[in-house]
């Protein structure tokens, strides 16, 4: 009985957050990000579809053109049109770029709360996405399109908490910092759900593919994910831990669960040395992108 009341409260709370998101600036992110992800998952999509999606959003177009003209992509001609960007920089790259630039808007307005910074969360999300994609490609020989999108968005629940449950969020951070307890568990105590669960609800509301919803929902515990999504979710989890190792962090409180991590590595048949090789290269790539203005 008591549990039922709690569930009702939780649902109500989440629904309030969702409608607040839909009324906020984040809704433009919802449509563009949703469209790009659908485009990625549609094998029949064309370069023109991508061009059309991006062209609707002038600030996004400007950002993409600026990044396309950065020295990282070393275009041989001035890129002044999304069509040209697709031809010169590449279809997949522009797709990724668009997604990254749009998702970046989630993390606008930098502000420090109890050791938490949006900009650091953003750096962490980009790195997670990048590492996850690399691991997925190199170790499993699979294209990392969805895993990249999932990496960028997997902390969306945290963003929502911070934006729409500001007071409680500050309290949770304070508790996590002072008690050294795992953030998810404190969230569950205070809200009745954690940020992964909230992220899942947002992702569902945004009509994202199931694979990405699973990644977001179970990135704190891949073993709870549906079997068909275990691999991708576990890779996400492992990639996030690599960020933790490399101290590309968003938050000083520990999220690391050593036992869970070891189980994931075993289940995925991954070795730390081989991961280290990938992450080393990945870090270099990220550093170059930052230096040359591609991020």
């Amino acid at each position: 009985m008591e549990a039922a009341v709690q569930t009702d409260q939780r649902t109500e709370r989440i629904e309030r957050i969702l409608s607040a998101i839909n009324d906020s600036d984040l809704s433009s992110i919802k449509s563009v990000v949703g469209n790009i992800i659908r485009l990625i998952n549609n094998p029949k999509s064309t370069a023109r579809d991508l061009k059309d999606i991006i062209s609707i959003d002038p600030p996004l177009t400007a950002k993409i053109l600026r990044v396309s003209n950065s020295s990282f992509y070393a275009a041989q001609t001035k890129i002044d049109d999304v069509g040209k960007a697709i031809v010169w920089v590449g279809f997949n790259t522009v797709r990724e770029l668009a997604l990254r630039q749009k998702a970046c808007e989630l993390f606008d307005r930098d502000e420090a709360i109890e050791g938490y910074r949006r900009s650091e969360l953003w750096a962490y999300s980009v790195a997670t996405a990048h590492f996850a994609k690399m691991i997925y490609r190199r170790e499993f020989g699979k294209t990392g399109d969805n895993i990249y999108s999932a990496g960028l968005l997997h902390k969306i629940g945290l963003i929502a908490e911070e934006q729409f449950l500001r007071k409680a969020f500050t309290k949770i951070l304070h508790l996590a910092n002072s008690k050294g307890e795992h953030l998810s568990r404190i969230e569950e105590k205070v809200f009745g759900f954690n940020h992964a669960y909230l992220g899942r609800e947002i992702a569902r509301n945004w009509n994202l593919p199931e694979e990405i919803i699973s990644c977001i929902a179970y990135h704190t515990n891949p073993f709870e994910a549906p079997e068909e999504h275990f691999e991708i979710t576990a890779v996400m989890h492992v990639a996030a831990i690599q960020c933790h190792f490399a101290q590309i962090g968003y938050y000083s409180a520990t999220l690391f669960d050593d036992e869970l991590y070891t189980r994931c590595l075993e289940a995925l048949n991954l070795e730390q040395e081989s991961l280290n090789m990938i992450i080393q290269e990945g870090q270099l790539e990220i550093a170059e992108m930052l230096e040359k203005g591609a991020l």
Binding site: T46, A47, R48, G83, I86, V87, G90, F91, N92, R137, R138, E139, F140, G141, K142, T143
Partner: peptide, 22 residues
């Protein structure tokens, strides 16, 4: 590297296909 190469090749083919369509 073999995996990366294999995927890159596939993506290149897809991209070429997309360019032609474009």
């Amino acid at each position: 590297l073999e995996n990366e190469l294999k995927l890159t090749r596939r993506e290149k083919d897809e991209a070429t296909q997309k360019y032609f369509e474009f």
